[in-house]
Amino acid sequence: MINKGTAFILSLFLFISCPTFGQDSLSSNIKITTHFGYEISNVGCYGNIGGQINYKKFGFGLAYILDYSDANGLDGPFGVATTLSFSPNHSDNKVINHFINLDYRITFHQRFCTFDCSQKYNKIQELNIGYGLSIKIFKRLSISNTINIGWYLEKSLSDRTGKTISESGSNSLINAKLNYLIAK
């Protein structure tokens, strides 16, 4: 059985390699970037790796996220993050572009159970809206940072009663990414 560490390295390979296949057919308005990032929210500290497709001023991103709190990441929670972004004054010629984004993520946390082990993971969902800046360093390399506020919902199965325990509240998320433009 493949473990999460192996899956992480293979996903890295796939994220870097796959979007370059067939890039000649892409319109010049479409750009594809890959990124590594780190983010801190009220739910946890995560590393992420993913890609983003930009069409004119709009962007759609998908990332695999992995808990890196206390540097014990490869055994920790994992999940998926999606981002919709809009950059009102975007230009390829600008060094700094700003954008707003809507971010949804779901993370799965392993349950440690004694009595009711019918479910393997508890999940936490986050919905955030944010503002970000992207700074071009080289032709293909940029860094970006977003500051988000939003809401989280944690649903956990009680080990003692078998009932679902919900917890929700306001959330904040700070995100930093290193982006690499792989197709244009």
Partner: peptide, 12 residues
């Protein structure tokens, strides 16, 4: 990448 992945999976 496969070798790297196997190396990491064996480290822990």
């Amino acid at each position: 990448y496969t070798t790297l992945a196997l190396f990491f999976s064996a480290c822990n």
